[in-house]
Amino acid sequence: MLRSISLAIAGALTAASVAGFAAHAQDAASGTAGTDDPIKTRQTIMESFGASAKVGGGMIKGEIPYNPAVGQLVLATLDAGAHTFGHYFPEGSDTGDTEASPKIWQDMEGFHAKIGDLQEATAAAVKAKPQDLDAFKATFGKVAKNCKSCHEDYRVEKD
């Protein structure tokens, strides 16, 4: 029990710091929102989303015991990613080892509107500070539905 909580925390922390530092380092290095390897950077942030969602979902499924501090870490990690992710889709980063759909660059406005929705949801979730599993479920659910609403149009499976 203790072990799984600490594992969960470690996982979420790693993800959060990876996302935060990657985004930070890239910004600092280039001095702009551009980056040498935007594909890698955004994939790293996306991995932190996945790792966080796995901890959040694991608590909801009952595979990981619920703990409010872990829950808050999950939400804060998602919030950090939501506020950095959108910077890493410059022109020309649509080809290569990426699942990003060409639609992103055809409809950058629509794509950023989706990211705006996600940011709104993660910011509200962090503020909500859920204290029990039912509250966490409701809060997490409002964030999680943004995953598929964006993936529906803007992500494709790789060949």
């Binding site: 969602a53 796995k54 979902g57 999680a144 995953c147 598929k148 993936h151 529906e152 992500r155 494709v156």
Partner: peptide, 13 residues
């Protein structure tokens, strides 16, 4: 839920 075991989400059609 639309989530894979790795908590990737369902996408596309």
């Amino acid at each position: 839920s639309g989530f894979t075991p790795d908590f990737d989400s369902v996408g596309g059609p």
